[in-house]
């Protein structure tokens, strides 16, 4: 692992819903290095969404420290976090979140609207264009979302996310709304961008998606259950365990029937 770009120390998050107190995260320590591709997995209620919000600087921990690129973001104010999100983090969402009336290029340019350091009109346009070219949509610049397929929409969203060369690219179930062929296409794109040097964190519950990452972090009940390389993870994954258990049961059932 190269230098750590993300350092989480004792991150806890407590929500209060009515009289109930929900411990979404109960002390998470995690380091992610530059140019890693990490999958965060877990069942619903495991705290993976909360962890993603935390990593994406959308949320602040109740306790614990979060260093991003050497800066203590857990102590930052709301507006400072907005600046961090603008410059250091790119988001890819399950449902793309493109603005329907804007062209692909305008959608990609969106983060620059809130940036004071993105240069002039031409510089902004060129940067958005080159991001679109990176995701292979250089020929769909003026198309609106309703003129694009699901996979193309997600490519536009990825172009928007990598526009600012962020420290981390956060993807939340990026293939959740895509068929398997398109899923493979988008995962291949992620892999390519990762090879180009991008740090990528993918939150997913699909093992196929996790298998494309080099590292898999599993959460359960707000704690890290396992943090393994993809190969090791495959061997011990509950999915595999479950699959084997199912196989055994089926075999036993067949035997009994025979």
């Amino acid at each position: 692992m190269s230098e750590s770009i993300i350092q989480l120390r004792g991150i806890a998050k407590v929500y209060r819903v009515g009289v109930e107190t929900i411990h979404a995260l109960r002390g998470v320590d995690l380091d992610i290095g530059r140019n890693e591709m990490v999958a965060i997995m877990g069942s619903s209620g495991s705290g993976k969404s909360t962890l993603m919000n935390m990593l994406g600087c959308l949320d602040r921990p109740t306790s614990g420290e979060y260093m991003l690129g050497g800066r203590l973001v857990s102590a930052m104010k709301t507006d400072e976090l907005a600046l961090i999100r603008n410059e250091e983090i790119g988001f890819v969402f399950q449902s793309f979140e493109l603005l329907a009336r804007q062209t692909a290029l305008e959608n990609v340019e969106l983060p620059l609207m809130y940036s004071a350091t993105a240069g002039g009109f031409r510089a902004r346009r060129e940067r958005a264009l080159s991001a679109l070219q990176r995701v292979g949509l250089g020929n769909r610049v003026d198309h609106r979302p309703n003129q694009l397929s699901g996979g193309q929409k997600q490519r536009v969203a990825i172009a928007r996310a990598i526009l600012n060369n962020p420290k981390i690219l956060m993807a939340d179930e990026p293939t959740g709304n895509l068929d398997s062929a398109t899923t493979a296409e988008i995962l291949a794109l992620f892999t390519r961008i990762y090879r180009e040097g991008q740090t990528i964190i993918i939150v997913t519950h699909e093992n196929d998606v996790a298998a494309h990452c080099q590292r898999v972090v599993r959460l359960r009940d707000g704690r890290i259950l396992s943090d393994l390389s993809a190969e090791e993870d495959f061997e011990v994954s509950p999915y595999v365990e479950e699959a084997r258990a199912t196989q055994r049961r089926r075999a036993a059932a067949e035997e009994a029937a025979a």
């Binding site: 507006d79 969402f93 979140e97 940036s115």
Partner: peptide
């Protein structure tokens, strides 16, 4: 609402 959420996620401040 979702658009506002997206804008904030990509770095819009409350003032913006």
């Amino acid at each position: 609402t979702r658009e506002i959420g997206l804008r904030k996620a990509v770095g819009a401040t409350s003032a913006a």
